[in-house]
Amino acid sequence: MSDEHTETGTGWPRPAGPARPGGPAGEPDPRPDAPDPDELSPLSPTERPAAGDEPSAEPGSADPPSADPVEGGSDAASAGGSSASAGGPWRRLSPAAVMIGVLLVLLGFTLAVQLKTTSTDPSMATARQEDLVRILYDLDAREMRLRQDIAALEESQRQLRSGEQGRQAALEEATRRADELGILAGTLPARGSGLAVRFEAGSKSISAVRVLDAVQELRGAGAEAMQISGGDRASVRIVASTYFLDGPGGSLIVDGRPLTGPFTITVIGDAATMRTALNIPGGVVAEVARDGGNVIVEDREVAEVSALHTPSRLEHARPVG
């Protein structure tokens, strides 16, 4: 046996190499639960640098090789992973989802523009401040009149429900309603404050359409009774069934009766409200003036509507009572 091998007691020679330090410090720990000497190494197998890359410590230096590069690399990897995960949802957006979002935005914009267009009245946008004030006054007057009607009806209801006075109140209410219906039907004369609206023809005669427009404007402004008179002082009561036709020579045919100009409509109602209705932009006064004519509106403290309407004979309907 050569000097380069030593006896191991197993029959096989031990390879030559650095001798293990002798003495108690070089012998293995005899305890059964003693840890493996490799586990006591300051560097784990995964963190131990490769052979040839281990930095050589200078003599006298007691500091172990720093593990900062490994930790720094780990931090950088963590930061890169979180960044990638943050951008993940945006990368998952498909072109179809983007197109749907764009279409929804366009739909909302179209609806907003349409609502703005429909809510804007072009005639109101071009009206003067004085005309807007008149229209507002007209609306306020209508609201006040409706509130008064509501209060009167509620008072009548209260009286009709009150014990002994119910019968007398019912009789008075029936009489009042009969008078009102008689005035509306044109079978009773009426008197009250109102207007006298006179139509004077210009280059063109006053057409039936202009007179009908005036009647409708006055009804919308709260007219309670109306009649129209011609130059020959013939008068016709205006009711719900009244019709107007153009006659020969600039005349009008009202409910089958011819009337010559100039024409005057006598109306009972709130004078200020009815005047405002006639003078609105593009209304009756403006249209007649565009045709070369003129409309003269006069207030009357006492306006009399004396012409009566003959009701038609009922052939099939009978009152029930």
Rank of each mutant, 00 (worst) to 15 (best):
E143G: 07
T110A: 11
V215R: 09
E4P: 04
S83G: 12
D38I: 04
I280A: 15
S119K: 07
G52V: 05
R31K: 07
V320L: 10
N294K: 15
A151W: 11
E200Q: 15
M99L: 13
A51H: 03
L136K: 11
V285I: 04
G80I: 05
D246S: 06
E71I: 15
Q148E: 07
P122T: 02
G192D: 01
E58N: 11
E58W: 13
P42L: 10
S123R: 15
S203Y: 11
L188R: 10
A271E: 08
E200D: 15
D121H: 03
P69G: 03
M124V: 12
D131R: 01
A271G: 10
R210F: 09
A112D: 06
N294Q: 14
E217I: 00
F199N: 00
T242W: 00
A234V: 11
I280T: 14
V236D: 03
V295L: 07
E4W: 09
T46M: 10
A51I: 08
F199M: 04
R14K: 06
P49H: 07
H316F: 10
S74W: 10
D38R: 14
T46A: 15
S94N: 13
I206G: 02
E298M: 07
A141F: 02
A214G: 03
V98E: 13
A317P: 10
A190D: 07
T120M: 07
H309F: 07
G220D: 14
P35I: 00
E172A: 15
V209A: 14
P15H: 08
Q129R: 15
A19W: 03
D299E: 14
E287N: 13
A25R: 12
E130H: 04
G108E: 04
P32Y: 10
R191A: 12
R48C: 04
